[in-house]
């Protein structure tokens, strides 16, 4: 109890600290200038983080486009077509993938993926696309394991009901099982999304980190997380506060996502 309380206290303190350091800056510079200006030149007193917001959103969207179809297909395959005993070893293995340090994913992205993109599709290689693919793979374990859990939680009586009406296995899956598991699947996607938007190391390594609005998936971008990590080493004064303010924006985005995920999970509980 005491440990739990001190853990919570610590989290609250961290959040309060970030807000205290960042919020005054946002008000000083003006919320629209901060969020919507595309000029980020701390040396010249210009603090517009719009390119980074766009970078984070593009990269996260890309990760979803890569990770969700793969994750869902994998989850359906593993939970509906694989015998129970095999699942017992496969699922922990998938969850283990979530524990691989992100620098390893980033390293593979730099060494393998980026050169491939540069060679076959053009651009600098280090790009939205590279980051999307790497992040998409990184969120696979989250999306998959939560989707598997929610597909497994669909009562067998639904499947029996569908089979008894002459439905094929595929029809049963897409007409009954997935709709029944939908809120859990959505929660998994949103948690994956949170992971993607918060990921830092791998993204710094593969996204290229240029501060400009991208024109194509092959362009390089900088994300909010990368912005903080790259500049914190030498930032002082206003610049330092600007990075904290970036953290506040990130925090709000992530809290929103978690809130949506929680509501999705809660609605699912209510329906049963």
């Amino acid at each position: 109890m005491a440990i739990a309380l001190s853990a919570i206290t610590m989290l609250v303190l961290i959040v309060l600290f970030i807000i205290k350091e960042g919020l005054p800056f946002i008000f000083k510079i003006g919320i629209t200038d901060f969020l919507l200006s595309t000029d980020w030149e701390p040396a010249a007193g210009k603090y517009g983080i719009f390119p980074m917001i766009a970078g984070s959103l593009w990269v996260t969207l890309g990760a979803i486009l890569v990770g969700v179809p793969l994750g869902l297909a994998g989850a359906v395959f593993l939970s509906e077509f694989i015998p129970q005993w095999a699942m017992k070893t496969i699922k922990p293995t998938i969850e283990l993938l979530a524990g691989i340090p992100s620098v390893v994913y980033g390293f593979i992205g730099v060494m393998v993926l980026a050169p491939l993109i540069r060679e076959y599709l053009g651009g600098p290689g280090l790009s939205i696309m590279a980051a999307s693919i790497i992040l998409g793979i990184m969120i696979l374990p989250t999306v998959m394991s939560i989707s598997i859990d929610s597909i497994k939680a669909v009562p067998n009586s639904y499947r029996e009901g569908a089979f008894a009406l002459g439905a094929t296995h595929w029809q049963t899956i897409h007409m009954v099982v997935i709709p029944a598991a939908r809120s859990g699947i959505i929660a998994g996607i949103i948690l994956g999304l949170g992971r993607a938007i918060g990921e830092t190391m791998a993204v710094i390594m593969v996204a290229g980190n240029a501060v400009k609005l991208p024109n194509s998936p092959l362009d390089s971008v900088r994300t909010l997380t990368a912005n903080i990590a790259l500049e914190m080493g030498y930032a002082t004064g206003m610049h330092r506060q600007a990075l904290f303010a970036t953290g506040v924006v990130l925090l709000i985005i992530i809290m929103l996502l978690n809130y949506i995920a929680m509501t999705a999970i809660r609605d699912r509980g209510k329906k049963k």
């Binding site: 009562p155 009586s157 639904y158 029996e160 009901g161 569908a162 089979f163 008894a164 009406l165 002459g166 439905a167 094929t168 007409m175 009954v176 709709p179 029944a180 329906k271």
Partner: peptide
Amino acid sequence: IYELRKRIGMVFQRPNPFPL
């Protein structure tokens, strides 16, 4: 088998309407 199950329907012990 699909044809068979369309011709021979089943009602279960616990009502099992789909969550639709």
